[in-house]
């Protein structure tokens, strides 16, 4: 059985921006979860800063999973699921490090949770600042419609959440916004190069 609070968080993530914001803040302010995550990272050769990064990435990953999967449902308590994400994220991080010992990697590999969908975090590393720059310049309405569309929401759902009269209006808005984004990219070849999205 899923706890009512957990259901509110999942519904909030899949709802409008206000409900999602509320859900994110609940996760951010969960001191018990934060302690568990920080302890895990620090007990596996991570620093305080790395623990903080993993905590934020865990929240981002969870939101992305729930947002992009309409049929998402928890198969275990929320904290256990989120700790599964944490373990996967930290395993990936340790694997990237050339200085890590094979025994450490093997130990973390055993703790990985393969039942959790792997999600690529896009706003990371070198391209984070350029991505943030491009996305910040988009109009709010366009950001919203393209965000829901790219997460796989149906046009009728987008219309309901964003208050468009019909799914046709939502589709038209999405098309206009996509055209604007494509025009922006066409005018700025250096940005495409910097993003180096394959």
């Amino acid at each position: 059985m899923i706890h009512t609070g957990t259901k509110d968080i999942i519904d909030g993530i899949r709802g409008d921006s206000t409900a999602r914001r509320r859900a994110i803040l609940i996760l951010t302010n969960d001191s018990d979860l934060r302690t568990k995550t920080y302890s895990y990272v620090k007990n596996h050769s991570g620093s305080q800063t790395e623990a903080e990064t993993v905590y934020n990435d865990m929240i981002v990953t969870f939101i992305k999973i729930v947002h992009t999967k309409p049929s998402f449902s928890l198969d275990r308590p929320l904290h256990a699921y989120l700790m599964g994400i944490t373990k996967n994220l930290w395993y990936n991080e340790i694997r990237k490090r050339s200085r890590s010992k094979t025994s450490d990697i093997e130990k973390l590999a055993e703790q990985r949770d393969e039942n959790i969908t792997a999600i690529e975090l896009l706003i990371k590393g070198d391209r984070a600042s350029i991505l943030n720059k491009v996305l910040s310049q988009m109009k709010i309405k366009c950001k919203e419609v393209l965000m829901y569309w790219s997460s796989g929401y149906k046009m009728q759902e987008i219309a309901n959440i964003l208050g468009y009269k019909t799914d046709g209006v939502a589709r038209k808005k999405k098309s206009e916004c996509m055209k604007e984004l494509l025009t922006y990219l066409a005018d700025k070849p250096h940005i495409k190069q910097q993003l180096s999205i394959k």
């Binding site: 994110i24 929240i59 981002v60 947002h67 896009l122 706003i123 393209l146 984004l181 494509l182 990219l185």
Partner: peptide, 26 residues
């Protein structure tokens, strides 16, 4: 023609929007 070529980039950018929103709140 350019739009067709850039479409995958635009789609990836759109897919980054949810992450962008969450990271801004964080």
């Amino acid at each position: 023609k350019q739009a067709v070529a850039d479409y995958p980039i635009a789609k990836t950018l759109s897919e980054s929007l949810i992450e962008h929103e969450v990271r801004e709140i964080l």
